[in-house]
């Protein structure tokens, strides 16, 4: 389904991944799901986006704020400065939020969630040299 930025009204076609980093026009992070027949309704019928949302009862897609820019994060230097704590957030014991992009880029592999909800990380775990293996506890 298409999406409409709730801040500036720009519309995005199906499968548009660009909005994951926020609206390219205004940086907005909240998008309304929108049916093809409802596109440009704000302009054509002089309606506010809020009105359209109320009429169509479609859901919103909110992009989580992520300060890191993926382009620069992929360079080695940026990865070293990585804030590891944010790759998994413990909301309360048994309830976790995962930052997929960070997990996919991090050099660390989380190998065990401790009973106290600290997690044990294994650095360089996938390389075969045992010399590079370090384990440490990450305190939450």
């Amino acid at each position: 389904m298409a999406h409409k930025c709730t801040q500036c009204g720009r519309e995005f076609q199906d499968g548009s991944n660009v909005i994951l980093k926020g609206c390219p026009s205004c940086g907005g992070k909240k998008f309304l799901y929108i049916q093809p027949q409802d596109m440009h309704k704000d302009v054509l019928e002089e309606k506010s986006i809020k009105q359209i949302a109320e009429e169509t009862k479609e859901q919103f897609l909110e992009i989580k704020d992520d300060k890191k820019r993926p382009e620069t994060a992929r360079t080695p230097k940026r990865v070293e400065m990585y804030d590891r704590i944010e790759s998994i957030t413990v909301i309360n014991p048994g309830s976790y939020e995962l930052n997929l992009e960070k997990l996919a880029e991090s050099d660390e592999l989380v190998i065990r969630m401790g009973d106290d909800d600290r997690y044990l990380v294994d650095i360089h775990s996938m390389s075969n040299s045992s010399k590079s293996k370090k384990k440490k506890y990450k305190k939450r």
Binding site: I88, Y96, L100, L103, A104, E108, L109, I111, M113, M126
Partner: peptide, 17 residues
């Protein structure tokens, strides 16, 4: 839930190489 969290973290990590 803990095991599932570890599993997802592991699977994501594998995408690296």
């Amino acid at each position: 839930a803990r095991e599932a969290t570890e599993g997802v973290a592991e699977a994501m990590h594998w995408l690296r190489e």
